[in-house]
Design a protein around this nucleic acid. Structure first.
Lengths: 231, 231
DNA sequence: TTTTGTATCTCGTAG
DNA sequence: CTACGAGGTACAAAA
C-alpha cells in the first residue's frame, strides 16, 4: 500500500462527473491498483476513488498544466468500464510504501441472517407448541423468512428483521395475502419479528392483524450451543 | 490526519459484532476523531471503522493482553450511540501526522435531478410538438417527474431515472393509473426515460403499454447553455 | 429537527 | 454470470 500526502486536484469521469479543487489530501494506492482520495474528515467514504480492476499511469503534465503548477498527472483507468480518475499532483508532502500482506478478513455476527437462523432453531420463542415448516418458504414474489404452524396448527408467515420498519410490514402483508390463496395453507396469519419495532410499523401491523414480536438477540444466542458461536 | 501502519487486532461492538484477526493494516485517524482500518485490497470501504462524533482513548493493555503481545489498546467510543471500536496494537511499523486543512469539497454533476431538469427544458427529446405541463406534478402518492402533452395533446406522465430498473416501471404504473382517474387528464400514457434501461424493466414497461426512451445525457447537456454548466 | 430517496453505493448470496 | 436484498449503509434534499 502506497500512501501519498499531496496538494492535488482530482477529476472523475464515468457514471457521473466530479471535481475536487486544489487542496492537500491523502492518496491511497492499494495493492490491487485501486485508488482512494481522502480528506481529513467526513465518513469512511473517500472524496473520490477508483475501484479495481484498474491501472495507474503516471505522466508528465502538459505545458498548460505545468504552468498552473502541476508536477505530475496520475491517470487511473478502470479496466472494465470507461470510468477514469485523474489526479493532478502539485506538491508531494509524503510518499511511502508499505507491505501489508493479505488480510485474513472480517468475522461478522449479529446480522439478520443469524437472527433468522436462531429463530428457526427456536420457534418456541413465538409460543409453546409452535413448529417450523421451513425457512425461506418460496412464494411467487419471493421467499418468506419462516413458515410455521402454531399450537393450533394454523399456518403463520414470519418476517424477520433486525429493525422492524414500515416496509417490512408491507412485505409481510403481501406474503400473507398470497399464501392465503393457497387452500392447503389458508388461513395464514402473519408475525413480524424484530429486535426493535418502530411505532409506525407496529401500528400498521396491528391494523392489519399482524402480530408483532420483539426479539432479544442475546437471549436467543444465550440458549444456542456455545460451540457454534464465533468467538 | 494520523496514519499508522501496525500489526493489530480489531473488535467492533455496536449494531453488530465484528472481529479482525491479527494482521498488518493501515489505521487512519481523522481530525474529527473518526478512525478507519484499511487492508491492502477490497474497495473503498474500510474493514472496520468508527464514524464521528467519537473519541479515541489510548490505554495500556491488561496483563493477559500484554502477554499475548499487545503493546497498546485504542478504544474509539461513539459519542451518540454505544458503538465501540477496540484496536489492539501489537507492533507499530509507521506513525506520522499530517495537517491537511479543511477540504473545499466535491462538485458533482450528472445525477438524476440534472437529467430531469435537462429533459424538462428539452421535452422535444420525446417528440416534435411536445410541451411541458409541469415538473414534479403532484399526485396523492407523490410527484410525477414530468407531466407533458404530446403533439396530439394527449397527457403523458414521464418518469426519469439514471438507470431504468423494474421498480421505476412499477412507480410509473401507479402514477399513470392514478392520473387516469382524473377526467381532466385522462387518457394518460406513460414514458419511462433513462440513460440505460434494463431488459427486465423494458419488458415490463412494454407489457404495460409504457414507452421506453433511452436518453443521451451528453447530447442533452451539449445543447444546454454552457454558462449554466459547473465547469 | 426527522423523514425520504439516491448512490461512482458496497457486499453478500442465491439461482 | 446476473439478480436481489441488506447495510454499523452514507449522503443530501425535502418536509
Amino acid at each position: 500500500m502506497r500512501l501519498v500526502i499531496a496538494k492535488c486536484q482530482v477529476d472523475y469521469a464515468g457514471r457521473l462527473t466530479a471535481h475536487l479543487p486544489l487542496a492537500t489530501r491523502l492518496i491511497m494506492v492499494k495493492a490491487d491498483g485501486s485508488v482512494l482520495v481522502h480528506s481529513d474528515g467526513g465518513s469512511y467514504k473517500p472524496l473520490n476513488w477508483m475501484s479495481p480492476p484498474c491501472t495507474l499511469v503516471v505522466a508528465e503534465p502538459d505545458e498548460e498544466a505545468a504552468e498552473a503548477g502541476v508536477t505530475a498527472v496520475w491517470t487511473v483507468q478502470n479496466s472494465k468500464s470507461d470510468d477514469r480518475l485523474v489526479v493532478s499532483i502539485h506538491e508531494v508532502l509524503h510518499d511511502a510504501d508499505h507491505d501489508l500482506g493479505v488480510d485474513p478478513g472480517l468475522v461478522k455476527d449479529g446480522v439478520e441472517a443469524h437472527l433468522q437462523k436462531l429463530l428457526a432453531e427456536q420457534v418456541e420463542t413465538f409460543g409453546v407448541g409452535w413448529r417450523l415448516v421451513r425457512r425461506e418458504y418460496p412464494t411467487p414474489i419471493g421467499p418468506v423468512d419462516l413458515l410455521c404452524r402454531d399450537d393450533a396448527g394454523v399456518a403463520v408467515a414470519v418476517e424477520v428483521k433486525r429493525r422492524g420498519e414500515i416496509d417490512g410490514v408491507e412485505q409481510l402483508t403481501r406474503y400473507v395475502e398470497l399464501l392465503n390463496r393457497d387452500p392447503h395453507l389458508s388461513p395464514v396469519r402473519g408475525v413480524f419479528a424484530a429486535q426493535e419495532i418502530k411505532p409506525q410499523a407496529r401500528t400498521l401491523a396491528t391494523d392489519r392483524g399482524i402480530t408483532c414480536v420483539t426479539v432479544d438477540y442475546d437471549a436467543l444466542r444465550g440458549v444456542d450451543d456455545p460451540s457454534t458461536r464465533l468467538f
